[in-house]
Amino acid sequence: MLVTERKPDEEILASVQGDASVFLVGCNGCHSACERGGAEDLPALAALLEGAGKAITGSTTVDFLCDKSLVRSRLRAFTRQILRADSVIVATCGVGIQCVADSVLKRVRPGCNTINLGGNHGTWGATERCAECGDCLLDKTGGICPITNCSKSMVNGPCGGTTSDGKCEVDRQRDCGWYRIYMRLKDLDALDQLKEVVGPKKHGNYLPSYDVMTGEHWATDAPVPAAAAAAGKEGDDE
């Protein structure tokens, strides 16, 4: 279970500043259980964007955005709408955003910050990792997380430790995260993005509030509504 929350409206609008049209993707997995980003949350996101003059070329939800094969098979049906959009906003956890980014050659922008991991992830079986940092930077890095893909979690580009074959000097089997980010942004013709000085990172967000860790964001932990509890006492549901 990855707990997420919607990024502030201003941050989402700032990320799509240069885009005329957007495609929206939501997740019905744990993200939906946090009451964020599932099918019911996308209309609000669409309204926000339309209010700012953006065209929505389409939207869809996938049961588990962390399952890349599922993501790819489901998104295929929306190929034309996705191609028409300038960018794709994904309202889910860092893993789901990266799975979508790895599946479409478009700027993929996070609609949420991932703030806490509580319990099992979905059916995610690929290489994408999310550090639940609560300060998602995927918009600036071509949908590849620098926190989990760079051994030093650098936010402004690579250190001098990139090997000539694009690996990391700390572990030569591992790709240099910033080499991948560089190649992705190059493919997207968006290398200018790399020139923006990012951070310093809000490490305070790593510590989720007690509020977030209890009750309200967790379907499984949510208090039983009073009416249902009362009904249970009376044995009406037998």
Binding site: N156, P158, G160, T162, S164, W178, Y179, Y182, L191, L194
Partner: peptide, 18 residues
């Protein structure tokens, strides 16, 4: 610092500008 021999050098140069 900057590493002029690191490839792709463009990646180093962008960071140098930053």
């Amino acid at each position: 610092v900057v590493a002029p021999g690191s490839e792709p050098v463009e990646m180093q140069i962008i960071r140098m500008e930053k």
